[in-house]
Amino acid sequence: MALINPKKKEVQVKIVYYGPGRGGKTTNLEYINKKFKERIKGEMTTVKTYGDRTLFFDFLPVDIGKIKGYDIKVQFYTVPGQVKYNATRKLVLRGVDGIVFVADSLVVRRKMNILSLQNLNENLSSFNRRIFDVPIVLQYNKRDMEKEGIPLLSVETLENDLNKQLKAPSFVASALTGQNVVTTMKKAISLTVASLQKKLELGG
């Protein structure tokens, strides 16, 4: 849950980038960090143990500034995608306020996307939360691979596989080129803060 400090008028929001391994979650955060380093007043921390794989998590704090008198701080996390790191994923999901599900558009990754979304659902259930109640944005990443002649899943297929029931906002994207990376993030922040404001009476 978001941390709110009524005295200091501070709200801290946690948004987690979730999805299958090698799907581009870290690349999303890296893009945001590189592009807006000067403005976001935070520093990206990547906890890695071996090689170039995320074995623990990436963390990027972003200071949004004052909205209606409240200082809004957003913390972005990524989780390791590989199945074997479910304990870490669960840990990072604890107290999540919003989710960006980064799906891999490659045809060969179709099953992994579905499994990962199921895994997200299961992990949220373990915290007694429903996937339908958490603000979520879907991102269909790696669309740039189409230019390389690599077979991609059609947007319709991805929507059908992942978003048929969720009916969440979704974006085609390329974390590598930056296409829709910021739009995805903005939508996630906007949805998450909007979902919190009623509970926290942010407006009142």
Binding site: N180, M185, K186
Partner: peptide, 28 residues
Amino acid sequence: KDDITSDLDNRLDELFGEDDGEDSFVPE
């Protein structure tokens, strides 16, 4: 609610608005 959302959206545009080049692709 609308005020806060629009304030927030404006702030997000201020902070990250420059990236519209790539993002104009968005069909949202």
